[in-house]
């Protein structure tokens, strides 16, 4: 019973969040477009499903994953775990935090796979590209990007480098890739940076950043706790373009191989024909 009440409370919050979007859509539809919405019944039910789904999703996350994930982020960054027995860290080496980086990458990857807005974009991309872009491959490449981004971002907090060096270096990679990767993927790759960080990823990543910044001497949770999200939005762009480049390279390689095989087949056939010809000729000559 209390679970149901909690669900209703979450549903109410979700509806309140969606109200501005809904009023804008309805306002423009009624006042500017002035035509009934096509398939209004289906669209209406779709909206209701989305709201119920989102509320269930958020409630479930609050119940199961967030408390555990946040506790884990705290425990993994706690001084007692990093240097057994010591309460306050005196000297740290970046490699003391190896489990933090592994956790950061693993949690970045797995939360991205479950991110609803990424699922939406991936479905749309597969549909629009006529299957040339596979929804699951796209999601996995984005998740790899987020994993690398958050692990690197955690490393940055540990060593205390200024954030903009990393971000600017990332931008330079994006610029170079943009000129060498298939044109079709560029807009989608740029988009994938923004969609990765929402409902599932942000709370867990924020807990990780806060845990790190508040336990490492010389870091301020208020200043160094920010920035992980920026990493998580930049690296998927690189990863998606890399995925496209790899796919293209693989296709090119396969094509070359096929051509080679065909060529050798043709040559063999020609050889055979020649042999037959010469046999025939020699028969004729006789």
């Amino acid at each position: 019973m209390s679970l149901f009440l909690e669900f209703l409370a979450t549903l109410k919050e979700t509806v309140v969040d969606v109200l501005p979007i809904l009023s804008i859509i309805l306002g423009f539809q009624l006042l500017v477009i002035r035509k009934p919405i096509p398939n209004i019944k289906q669209v209406g039910f779709g909206f209701i499903y989305v709201l119920i789904g989102l509320a269930l999703f958020l409630l479930g996350l609050e119940k199961a994953l967030f408390p555990l994930g946040k506790m884990m982020a705290e425990q993994l960054t706690a001084p007692e775990f990093i240097q057994a027995g010591e309460q306050v860290l005196t000297s740290i080496h970046w490699s003391d935090y190896k489990w933090v980086y592994i956790f950061a990458a693993a949690i970045g990857f797995s939360t991205t796979i479950a991110e609803p807005s990424l699922i939406a974009v991936a479905i749309k991309a597969e549909e629009v590209s006529g299957g040339a872009i596979n929804a699951n491959s796209l999601r996995i490449s984005v998740a790899i990007g987020v994993a690398i981004g958050i692990a690197l971002g955690s490393y940055r907090i540990v060593v205390g480098h200024p954030i903009h060096y990393y971000i600017i270096a990332g931008y330079i990679v994006v610029v170079i890739q943009t000129f060498y990767c298939p044109k079709l993927i560029v807009p989608l790759a740029y988009d994938s940076g923004g969609v990765t960080t929402s409902t599932v990823t942000v709370p867990l990543v924020a807990a990780l950043g806060l845990g790190l910044a508040s336990t490492i001497p010389g870091r301020s949770p208020l200043i160094d706790g920010f920035g992980l999200i920026a990493f998580a939005s930049l690296f998927p762009i690189i990863a998606v373009m890399a995925y496209a480049q790899l796919t293209e390279a693989k296709a090119l390689l396969a094509k070359q191989r096929l051509e080679k095989r065909n060529r050798s087949k043709i040559e063999k056939r020609n050889d055979k024909l020649k042999q037959q010809d010469s046999i025939k000729e020699s028969k004729n000559n006789r």
Partner: peptide, 29 residues
């Protein structure tokens, strides 16, 4: 376990509603 079940149900509903409601309204507008 209850939380995980809710998450799975929620995700399923969301994706269902996405293709029924959100995508069509965005495109029709």
């Amino acid at each position: 376990l209850i939380g995980l079940m809710l998450v799975v149900l929620g995700l399923t509903f969301f994706i269902y509603g996405l293709e029924m409601g959100l995508f069509p309204i965005g495109e029709s507008m």
